[in-house]
Design a protein around this nucleic acid. Structure first.
Lengths: 209, 209
DNA sequence: CCAAAAGTGTTGGCTCTACACCCATGA
DNA sequence: TCATGGGTGTAGAGCCAACACTTTTGG
């Protein structure tokens, strides 16, 4: 059970990895993970381990794929269920005591080599995220409650790995009807930007017939 | 490790289930499955169990989802990796000796209640199949090597659960460029039909930008 | 010649993409 | 007033859905 955690950070998509502290792969980066306990739901195990590794307790979680190549772990034949987790804030990461080492955020386009088959997991997670961002409101789990259109657009560009036309993007997102205008505006050095929020703070799929 | 096996049968989509022969769920229908051996790839285990249950050895296999609810099996906490398998021929099913009971094919729209969470698995598999049939050549694994356009169309209608416009369907499929005309024709009681085959006999994804 | 399935085009509406300028603000 | 990022509209192309008749064969 391993979890690829993502969040948005100033228009970049970043993922959280921790250094392994024992075994033959000591020192390599890997996604945080652990073992499922008997009688425990898989999702609960993922949530528990994510909390242990990061202190996060309300992240979005989704099962990705189960990796079972006997050679994936040099020590033993461990089958691993991979999860994708999405969090709102890059800060606030603090393992609540317990043996978890502190990890690091990397931009997904600049990931270091990962231990086991975690590189594959990262690819898989990104593929899933890319797909889902097109027809669901899944971005709600990556952004703070309130955000500007520009922030949303930057996030989409980072996830899709390509620039996005601002006007077409706005039209499409609006057509999906997922956003609600939020009172107030974000004021910076220039023209203030309107604030939006996702109407639903849980996964919602848009029918496209 | 459980496998939902499908095939096409005269324009219907059918799935194979076996009766459980022991335990508290004795007599209920379930997808064939078994345990992964230490040191075995998950896919290999699925292939092996599918062979043991049906005698099939060249089916298309794809991992679907991992079910880990501790209450899914009344006897013990068993985590199960669900697979979808697609086969070409409804006939030829014969467990090669070994304790496997004989199973039955059911049309997917008329499945009996299944044991464990296999009903969920069936739903999941169908969802995946529906999606993939739209942008891949995955139907190659369900049809005989040669088939008529009408057969392909019937299969699509069965998978999608809705009728399909013949002309639009032909246009779209042709546009994907997956088919090759096959010499000869299928002669029946009426006008003979041209034969086609999938150019690639392995999964191929069509880019749609 | 009749019944049954195979095969084939066109049109209108809709959607998508490409593209450039004005606006509001703070410094 | 200028620099910066926020916000907006339109036209042309391509795509998709809806729709019905002709062809070929066997009986």
């Amino acid at each position: 059970m391993d979890t690829a955690l993502f969040t948005a950070d100033g228009g970049r998509l970043v993922t959280y990895v921790v250094p392994l502290t024992r075994g033959p792969l000591n020192g390599k980066w890997a996604f945080p993970g652990g073992l499922v306990r008997t009688g425990e739901m898989l999702d609960d195990a993922a949530r528990r381990e994510l909390y242990a590794a990061t202190g996060l307790c309300d992240a979005y979680l989704e099962q990705l794929f189960t990796f079972g190549d006997p050679s994936r772990d040099p020590v033993a034949h461990v089958v691993s269920v991979a999860y994708m987790a999405l969090a709102r804030e890059r800060g606030l990461i603090a393992p609540p005591s317990g043996g978890y080492p502190e990890g690091r955020w990397f931009e997904v386009s600049a990931l270091p080599p990962l231990a086991y088959d975690h590189g594959l997991m990262a690819e898989y997670a990104l593929k899933r995220l890319k797909a889902k961002v097109e027809y669901t409101n899944i971005a709600y789990a990556l952004l703070p409650r309130e955000f500007t259109f520009a922030e949303l657009e930057e996030l989409y560009a980072a996830i899709l790995g390509r620039p996005v036309d601002r006007r077409n993007f706005r039209r499409r997102i609006m057509a999906m009807g997922l956003l609600a205008r939020q009172p107030g505006e974000r004021r910076g050095a220039h023209r203030p930007a309107a604030l939006y929020t996702f109407k639903q703070q849980s996964l919602q799929t848009v029918e496209m017939l």
